[in-house]
């Protein structure tokens, strides 16, 4: 993976206003994968009785991480859009803990990238998994 591609993914994350609003941070990126984290914050709470983050915040983390993994794939171009994203919420993230997600391109064709992701707080069991289909821009790869 070229330096310019890594830089492009890093910019993709930091430049997006909605990623900034959720304070997403890039943990790591490589060919066809990316890792992002989202710090816990009171304004992301979905259930005031428990303090657990809203699923919608986790969705955004998953969507962004999957998109970053597509952009970091050697056969994909520099942009992508979500076609379909399914999230399974296995348990609520523990209040106060950051959530990190790792996404991997399972398969990339000329038009579609099939991506899977898992998200964890500090515990060993995943809080959520995601499966998505993303667009692939022409002109990617060698």
């Amino acid at each position: 993976m070229s330096e310019s591609q890594i830089a492009a993914v890093r910019d993709f994350i930091t430049d997006l206003p909605y990623s900034r609003a959720l304070r997403l941070e890039l943990g790591g990126v490589g060919p066809g994968w990316a890792e992002l984290s989202m710090p816990y914050h009171a304004d992301l709470v979905g259930d005031p009785a428990t303090g657990v983050m809203h699923g919608g915040a986790v969705s955004a983390l998953m969507d962004t991480t999957c998109g970053a993994a597509v952009m970091a794939h050697p056969d994909a171009g520099p942009g992508t859009a979500t076609l379909d994203l399914r999230i399974d919420y296995m348990r609520g993230a523990v209040p106060g803990q950051a959530v990190r997600a790792r996404a991997t391109c399972v398969r990339v064709t000329r038009s579609i990238a099939f991506v899977q992701a898992s998200a964890y707080d500090e515990g060993a069991d995943p809080i959520a998994t995601a499966t998505g289909a993303f667009t692939v821009m022409a002109g990617g790869g060698a």
Partner: peptide, 13 residues
């Protein structure tokens, strides 16, 4: 364009 994550959050809300 709107962030896909914002759209997802909106629909879930």
């Amino acid at each position: 364009a709107l962030h896909g994550g914002a759209t997802a959050g909106f629909l879930e809300v």
